[in-house]
Nucleic acid binder design. Sequence first.
DNA 1: CGGGAGATTGACTGATCTCAACCCGGGTGG
DNA 2: CCACCCGGGTTGAGATCAGTCAATCTCCCG
Lengths: 234, 234
Amino acid sequence: MKNHTAPVRKEYFSESSSIFRHLTPEELARIPIDQDPDFYKRGTIVYSEGSRINGFYCVQRGIIKIYKTGFDGKEQIIRFAKKGDIMGFRSTITRERACTTAKVLEDAYISFVHADTVLEFVKHNGTFALELLQIACKELGEANDYITDIAQKTVRERLAEVLIHLRKDFDLDHEKYLQITLTREELANMVGTATESVIRLLSEFKQDGLIELQGRKIKILDEKMLFKIGNMND
Amino acid sequence: MKNHTAPVRKEYFSESSSIFRHLTPEELARIPIDQDPDFYKRGTIVYSEGSRINGFYCVQRGIIKIYKTGFDGKEQIIRFAKKGDIMGFRSTITRERACTTAKVLEDAYISFVHADTVLEFVKHNGTFALELLQIACKELGEANDYITDIAQKTVRERLAEVLIHLRKDFDLDHEKYLQITLTREELANMVGTATESVIRLLSEFKQDGLIELQGRKIKILDEKMLFKIGNMND
DNA sequence: CGGGAGATTGACTGATCTCAACCCGGGTGG
DNA sequence: CCACCCGGGTTGAGATCAGTCAATCTCCCG
C-alpha cells in the first residue's frame, strides 16, 4: 500500500488544521513517521469492526466512510472522514476493539500514528489533550443530534437533512454538483432507511425542483426549502 | 438549593470511582469547593438545552435524566447520570451551549466544578486528561451503537434492549424490581417511539412471561429471552 | 454480447403512529 | 366527606409511512 507519489508528507503534522499543530518541535520529532503517508485505494478497508487498533489514522486526502454493521448486516454510516480528520481515536483511547469499519470511498493518503505516541502526547502536552477532547466532544454532540433525528424525524425529513449536511461538509465540482458521490444504498445507510425509499424521495425532491440528479451526482438547488423540510435549526 | 444534610462531601473527589482520583493533593486543594454538594429535588432542571454551562456537574447521588428536545417538543432521552457520573462536560470542553437538558428523576446531590478548574487540570495533569478522554470516548461508542440500533431495529427489539440496559445500569430493590421507575412516556422517549406502543409491547412481554409489572416498577424475569429479542451481542 | 451491479418502479404488507374514548388513583377545594 | 380534576395508563380502530418483494431497466465492463 505504500510507495506512491505521496502528495502530503510530514509537514502535514504542523499544518494549522492538524491536531498536532500544538506539539513542540521536539515532540513532533518523536513521531516515528519518517515514511510517507500510506496510500489507500478506493474500496480498501482501513480497519474493521472488532479489530484492534493501535493508533490514529490521520486522513490527509481522500474520503473514508465510517460505518457500523447492524444485526442483519446492514451498514449504518456514522460519518465520513476527510482531509484533516482523524479516525480510530475512540478505540485508541479506550483500548477497546474498533466498533466501526472504515472503508475508502475516494483514494486516500493516510498517516498512522502509534497509540503509544498519542498517549504520550495526551499526558505531556495539555493543549494536545484538550484538542483531542474537543474533537471527541464535538463528535459526541453530533451523535446526540443524530440520535434525536433518527428517533423522531420521518425518512423524508432525514433525507433532506442529510443532503444539507453533505452540502456543508463537502465541496462542489465546477458544475455545482456535490463532490462526494454515494450510491443510493449508501444514502439509505446514512438516513437509516431502505434504498427504495431514498430513490423515491430523491425523485420527489427532484420533481419539486429542490435538487438535480445526474446519475450519482447531486446538485442542491433549493437549500432553504430542504432546510425547512428537514426541520433544521443550525 | 443548599443546606441539606449532605450525605457526601469533598471526600467524593478522591473516591476510586471519581475522575478526580488521580489529582494530586495540591490540585485537589485547588478545587474551590469547601461547600457541600448542592441538593436538587426531583423535577428540578439542572441545566437546560441552549444554556451556557460553566463547568462539570458531578453526580454524587440520585438519578438525572439527560435528554434533547426534538423539533416537535418530544423528548429524546440520551442517557441517565447517576452516582459517579459527570454531566455537562461536552459543553464545558467545547465551550458551546448545552445541547441537552438535565432533569432530576430522583433527589440528587451534585457538586459543581468550574470550567477553569477543569481545563486547568486537563492541561496540567495528563492522567486526568486521559481519564476525561476515556469518558468521552466511551459515551461516543455508546452513542454510535444507539444510532445503529434506532436506525435498524424495530420498536420491539429496541424496547427489549432498553430493558436489558436498565437492568445493567441500575440496582434492584428487595423484590428484584428495577430501582429506577420511569413513566411509559419516558420509556417511549428512550426507545424513540410512541407511548402507546411501549404500553402494548410491555404488556406483550408480560404475557410472554418476560417481565412483571407493578405500576411503574418493572421486574426482568427472562433476561436471556429479552436479550434474544433485542438482537444483542454484548 | 452476456453478466452483474445499481437504479427504478409498482404493488402489497404491515409495523407503528395517531386519535379518541375510557379508566384509575391521588390530591384538592368546597 | 365527596365530587371533581388531572396526570398517567390502557385499549381499540383506522390511517399511513415506509419496508419488502419482484420485475425491469440502464449502464459499464470484460
